[in-house]
């Protein structure tokens, strides 16, 4: 038994893109406990919701997080549309699905890159982020912004994806698939990556369930839970199976995210194959009144 010591970590630290303070309790050079203190980036968006028009609030909802901005905006408009009983046109539903999957691609690549950076594989980090730029180029072409989309609105979407853009995106999907296969090999088969991720950070299925883990994190803990299966947007009409791993460690998280990259590429292709022509938005009259709960 060694002596316990406490090392303060953060709020400013080179590996942290966001501020977080941890008190690391260390025993024999092994971190035994990490006590977090959070709130350094608290802004108070909920207060702003009271002051803004419900149409404007979409743009603020998107700025909850710059990495998953489309998801936040989508959740907000879906909730308002349910309250107001607005039927979104089919084409808008499919476009929303395509943008969410493109965002998932960029978000997962970003996560994988930062993970590589965290376990000290700098060139893999750069490679993942280089591939991610291709997705950002698609965002820029279709929405005008690289990270903040601002194409959703209550009742539909603001922009269309035309035939030329569709062809370009599908071509890029082929390129991405090939390039992601290259980094997938390194992430999943490289010895040094495995030694830094296998058996590390284990969160058992029971713990994940109790702590309320969601998304790829929960799926890497063996919980077969994918909110896309509830069929919001156009997911109900697309064919996919949630990707689950039972290993519960960091390696499982890498694996789930890498497989989801290929799933996202597949979903984008499926959505483009099925997308109907038609209107982009329905007229919305009145104001929303009521409560609704959406999971995205």
């Amino acid at each position: 038994m060694g002596k316990k010591s406490v090392v303060p970590f953060g709020p400013q630290h080179p590996v942290l893109p966001e501020p977080l303070h941890l008190d690391l309790v260390i025993e024999d050079e092994v971190v035994e406990e990490a006590i977090p203190s959070i709130g350094f980036i608290h802004r108070g968006l909920e207060g702003l919701a009271e002051k803004r028009d419900f149409n404007e609030m979409m743009y603020i909802a998107e700025r909850t997080c710059g990495i998953c901005s489309f998801g936040h905006g989508l959740g907000y408009v879906e909730a308002v549309e349910h309250i107001m009983n607005v039927q979104v046109p089919d084409r808008a539903r499919y476009l929303r699905t395509i943008w969410s999957e493109l965002e998932r691609l960029h978000s997962h690549l970003l996560w994988l890159g930062l993970a590589a950076d965290a376990f000290g594989f700098e060139s893999l980090f750069y490679e993942a982020w280089r591939i991610r730029e291709k997705v950002l180029d698609i965002h820029e072409m279709t929405c005008g912004g690289r990270l903040i989309f601002s194409v959703n609105k209550v009742g539909g979407v603001l922009r269309d994806i035309n035939a030329d853009q569709q062809k370009f995106i599908l071509d890029q999907m082929n390129v991405l698939e090939k390039e992601i296969k290259n980094i997938a090999k390194v992430f999943l088969e490289d010895y040094s990556v495995q030694s830094r991720s296998k058996g590390i950070g284990v969160l058992t299925t029971k713990q994940a369930h109790e702590l309320g883990a969601v998304g790829p994190f929960a799926r890497a803990c063996g919980i077969k839970n994918d909110i896309r299966l509830t069929g919001y947007c156009a997911y109900g009409e697309l064919d996919f199976e949630p990707i689950v791993s039972n290993d519960c460690d960091c390696y499982a998280r890498l694996e789930v995210r890498i497989k989801e990259l290929f799933q996202s590429i597949d979903l984008v292709r499926q959505a483009f194959a099925k997308i109907p022509a038609g209107e982009l938005e329905t007229k919305v009259a009145g104001f929303p009144k009521g409560e609704y709960f959406v999971r995205i």
């Binding site: 966001e18 501020p19 980036i41 700025r63 997080c65 710059g66 982020w129 950002l136 990270l147 903040i148």
Partner: peptide, 30 residues
């Protein structure tokens, strides 16, 4: 340092340092 941003600018700062934009060619190091 990330004050209270939504992370959008933070990842753009990182993107500016990664190969496509490569601010490190100016001699800066993060």
């Amino acid at each position: 340092y990330d004050g209270s941003s939504c992370n959008g600018c933070d990842i753009e700062v990182l993107a500016a340092l990664t190969p496509v934009y490569d601010a490190e060619r100016l001699g800066v190091v993060n």
